[in-house]
């Protein structure tokens, strides 16, 4: 317990530092004193406008999105008992993308695009659940056989189906709309002012999964072991699936599809702090948020006034960091 608090505290401090950095950097760099005035001083004034009006909402949206993606990734890896699972593996982002890109093709506004993305994600969630609901609820379980491979396979198939539809949409889309569609697909926090739903969802998701964390530890040892130890596996798996999918849906709706966070953050933390979900899940949410915030800050400052897609930055940070951890781990078993 003490160890958990220490880890969370360190991560929270890191998050705070990155938050300050994100608020201070941009077209005009703010010194710490100016930043303090802008944040806590009276309204009016340029700095106040920029920080409170522009940078803060975007920073909050980035943090919430990253947290949701990382948490969803960690949960999917537990649900599927597969280290390669990520929030998108079950085809959720595909559904959301088809919804969002369809709305863009129809020439709808930002709100309608978000709504359509959420609807697409929801369709994907319901569709997958309808296809594999037997795997969640069946009692007729045979020994070492896990329900997970069927779930994973069905999800991957669903994702490929969505992928085909997305490709078809790009083929049919008029030239003028291609750039916007491409940016959405790569993940983009530009214009992500609606941080509140994602932030609330992040808090709720952590609060919902935290009490189940020890049962998730047991579930990782296998379904038979978990059920023998008194874990209600089908209910638990359903709850995990629901939290992970809704988290992913909100993240995708807020910022498009951003890769690597959901895969890299949980693994990196597993290597650093171990695989106790009680420590790992909150830590994952914090780290995912911090990492995406850092990546977004880099995305909007590196080649300013041009903005890079944040998905590129997450990959460029995530991949080498992960490789480093993996090789370090291999040398010191």
């Amino acid at each position: 317990m003490r160890r958990a608090l220490t880890i969370w505290l360190c991560l929270a401090v890191a998050a705070l530092v990155v938050f300050m950095l994100a608020l201070a950097s941009g077209s005009t760099w703010l010194e710490p004193v100016q930043l303090g005035e802008a944040l806590f001083g009276p309204a009016g004034g340029m700095a106040h406008e920029i920080v409170i009006g522009l940078r803060l909402p975007r920073a909050l949206a980035a943090f919430a999105t990253g947290g949701l993606l990382a948490l969803a990734g960690a949960l999917m890896q537990i649900l599927l008992r597969n280290p390669l699972a990520d929030p998108y593996v079950l085809g959720l982002s595909g559904g959301a993308a088809v919804g969002a890109l369809g709305a863009m093709l129809a020439g709808l506004g930002v709100f309608a695009i978000n709504l359509s993305a959420a609807a697409g994600a929801l369709v994907s969630i319901v569709l997958l659940f309808a296809l594999v609901r037997r795997d969640f609820s069946r009692q007729q379980m045979l020994g070492a056989m896990d329900a997970s491979p069927r779930l994973l396979l069905t999800g991957v198939m669903l994702a490929s189906g969505w992928g085909a539809i997305i490709t078809m949409m790009f083929a049919l889309a008029p030239e003028a709309k291609l750039r916007g569609m491409l940016f959405w697909l790569m993940g983009d926090l530009n214009g992500a002012e609606s941080w509140a739903p994602a932030m609330v969802a992040l808090a709720v998701a952590v609060a919902v999964v935290y009490p189940m964390a020890r049962e998730l530890n047991v579930l990782l040892r296998g379904e038979t072991v978990a059920r023998a130890l008194g874990v209600r596996v089908s209910g638990l798996r359903f709850a995990v699936y629901l939290v992970a999918s809704v988290s992913t849906a909100l993240a995708v709706t807020t910022a498009g599809t951003i890769g690597f966070i959901g895969l890299v953050v949980p693994h990196a933390l597993r290597l650093l702090v171990g695989n106790d979900q009680r420590i790992l899940l909150p830590a994952t949410a914090l780290t995912g948020g911090t990492l995406l915030l850092l990546a977004d800050t880099a995305a909007r400052t590196l080649v300013a006034p041009q903005q890079l897609p944040v998905g590129v930055i997450t990959a460029l940070i995530g991949v080498p960091a992960f490789m480093f951890l993996m090789t370090r781990r291999a040398r010191t078993p």
Partner: peptide, 19 residues
């Protein structure tokens, strides 16, 4: 169970304490 398939690493003491 006859077979326990570990997908993720865990320390021996953690596994035993899970009992």
């Amino acid at each position: 169970p006859q077979i326990i398939h570990d997908a993720f690493g865990a320390s021996v003491i953690e596994c035993v304490m899970m009992g």
